Structure formats: structure tokens, C-alpha cells
Computed example of a mutant assay.
Amino acid sequence: MDERVKTASLSIISNSSLIIMKLIVGIFTGSVSILSEAIHSTMDLAASIISFFSVKISSRPADKEHPYGHGKFEDVSGVLEAVLIFAASIIIITEALKRLISGQEVNSSTLGFLIMFLSAAINFLVSSKLHKVAEKNDSMALKADALHLRTDVYSSAGVGLGLFLIWITGLHFLDPLVAIFIAFFILKEAANLLKSAFNPLVDVKLSDSEISIITDTISKYNPGYCGFHKLRTRKSGNERYVDLHLVFPGNMHIKKAHDICDDIEKEMRKSLKNTEVMIHLESCNDDCANCGLPNKSKCKNR
């Protein structure tokens, strides 16, 4: 089984267990913050299921219908997960405001904060595993899932702290206030996730640092060509795509020019994992007929 798929299934098992535990304790104690955490974990479970299927599909090789592979299924997954987080946050805020107005008290804060701290510890371990595998495989779906669980770590710890303070002070209004604070924190994380997942869907270029690696790699083989232009980059799932036009002297043998392109492609794949490179060979026109190396200023980056 693919490592990403195996790790995504771990998240499903973890979230399912936590939902049951939080629901039981939330109903018993009457704590809106614990119930909001159960809602949060339910959204996490839905996100984990989406992540599981997206990494399973994205791991398929390219086919006739998807010649560039299935990587964007992970990006779609990230957008859907961000929307789920937004929905969970709105539900939490609504329920907390109702509880704040009604002034309902928590029945047993002691059991509540113990369960919340346990939940935070479990999610910390699982999210760390997810993040490690996500970084290793550059998986947007697993990064989104890891973010879900990491926000759950903070929110569970925050709810636990709020219930602990209620146990000490007897101020029950702290319960819905903590829930509202957590919801706004989750909204901020969801906005960041939505941006990261949506950009590849509209073919936003690679990051400046990645483009710098690409241009530096090309420069290693100069002199050898006259210049390059029309550099374009994009990302699909964990796959990076780079294409450019490389200009050579008109009298250079095609095999020599092709060998230089091969070397650049190999070097680029070493520097940036999961990268597909397409280089279009171009010959200098009449304006740079004297481009013969090393005098190549007229052809540079047209």
C-alpha cells in the first residue's frame, strides 16, 4: 500500500475514535466547547476520508484521460477540506453564542479537561506522523489533513484549559468563550489552507525560491547556449512542471544541443523532486547571427 494512503487511513481511525469519545463526554458534561470539538473532529473525519481517496487517486499513473497525471485531485481535496473547516467554525460559533446567552453550566469540568488533554496528545502524535509523510511526498492532501489535526491539538488543549479554569474559578461562561476563540483560530488556518490548495488549480507559478533553483541550474551550463526565455512553471499535486525555450547558436550540431538539454533536465530533477521538464530548442535568428559563444548578450533571456 502507498505510504500516503496508509497514513491517511491512520487519520480516519484516529478521528473516528475521538469523535465517539468527545460526543459521550460532551453530552455527559453539557460542555459546548467539548461538543464543538466533537463537531470539529467530525469535520476532520470527513477531511480524512477525502484525503484518503484523493491520495489513492493521485497515486495512479498518467492515462489517456489524464496525460498529466492525477495530481490535482490532491489540490481539489485541499480546497474541500478548507471549506469543511470554515463550515465547522461557523457551527461552533453559532452554538457557543447560544450557550453564552442561555448561561448553561458545565456539569463536570474535571472529566472534560482530562479528556481534552488526552485528545490533544493523540492528535499531536497523529498530526506529526501525517506532516512527516506529507513533507516527504510533497502531498497537499496530507498537509491539509495534518493541518486539520494540528488545529485540533490547539483547540483541544484550549478547551481543556478553559474547563480547567472553570474547575478552579467556577466561571462557566468561560466554556463558550473558549469555543468562540478556537473557532476564530480555526478560521485563520482554513484561510491559509484554502490559498495553498487553490493556487495550483489555477496554475500559479512555482515559488520564487523554486524558480531561483531552476534558473541557477540552467546557468550552470552557460556557456553552452545563447540564452533562454518563455520560462513557465506550475504545480499539480506533488508534481512540478517546467517548460522553457533554450537558444543555441545556429551552427551548433543538434545532438550537442540536445545533450545540453538532457543534462539540464537531469540536474533540475535532482534539485527539485517530482519535476517534469520540457525544453524547446531554438536557433538564433538574424539579429543574433554573431551569438557564437562566448559573445551571447543579444540572445540572453529574450
Results as ranks from 00 to 15, higher is better:
3 E>H: 05
5 V>H: 05
7 T>C: 05
8 A>D: 01
9 S>F: 07
12 I>R: 06
13 I>R: 07
14 S>N: 11
15 N>I: 02
16 S>Q: 06
17 S>R: 05
17 S>E: 01
20 I>N: 03
24 I>L: 07
26 G>N: 05
26 G>E: 00
27 I>A: 03
31 S>E: 03
36 S>A: 13
39 I>P: 02
41 S>W: 14
49 I>L: 14
50 I>F: 11
52 F>S: 07
57 I>K: 15
57 I>A: 10
59 S>T: 09
64 K>T: 12
65 E>L: 12
68 Y>M: 08
68 Y>C: 05
68 Y>K: 08
69 G>D: 11
72 K>V: 14
72 K>I: 14
74 E>R: 06
83 V>M: 12
84 L>N: 04
87 A>M: 13
89 S>N: 03
89 S>D: 00
97 L>V: 12
98 K>P: 02
105 E>A: 07
105 E>I: 10
111 L>F: 03
111 L>H: 04
113 F>N: 01
114 L>S: 07
118 L>R: 01
119 S>N: 09
119 S>I: 12
123 N>P: 00
127 S>C: 03
132 K>A: 11
133 V>K: 02
138 D>W: 00
138 D>E: 13
139 S>H: 01
140 M>I: 12
142 L>Q: 01
144 A>P: 03
147 L>M: 09
148 H>A: 01
148 H>W: 11
149 L>P: 00
156 S>N: 10
162 G>L: 02
165 L>F: 06
167 W>A: 13
167 W>V: 05
171 L>M: 12
172 H>Y: 10
178 V>D: 02
179 A>C: 10
181 F>W: 10
184 F>M: 06
185 F>C: 04
185 F>K: 13
191 A>L: 13
196 S>T: 14
197 A>G: 04
199 N>E: 13
199 N>Q: 14
200 P>I: 03
202 V>M: 09
202 V>E: 06
204 V>Q: 12
207 S>M: 13
208 D>L: 12
209 S>P: 00
210 E>G: 04
211 I>Y: 03
214 I>G: 06
215 T>P: 05
216 D>N: 15
218 I>H: 07
220 K>W: 05
221 Y>N: 12
222 N>H: 14
222 N>T: 13
224 G>V: 04
226 C>I: 14
227 G>Q: 03
229 H>T: 02
229 H>I: 03
234 R>Y: 08
242 V>S: 00
243 D>T: 12
243 D>I: 12
244 L>S: 06
249 P>G: 09
253 H>C: 05
256 K>L: 11
257 A>I: 11
263 D>I: 12
269 R>L: 01
273 K>W: 00
276 E>Q: 15
278 M>K: 12
283 S>E: 09
284 C>T: 15
293 L>E: 08
293 L>V: 09
297 S>E: 14
299 C>S: 07
301 N>K: 15
302 R>K: 12
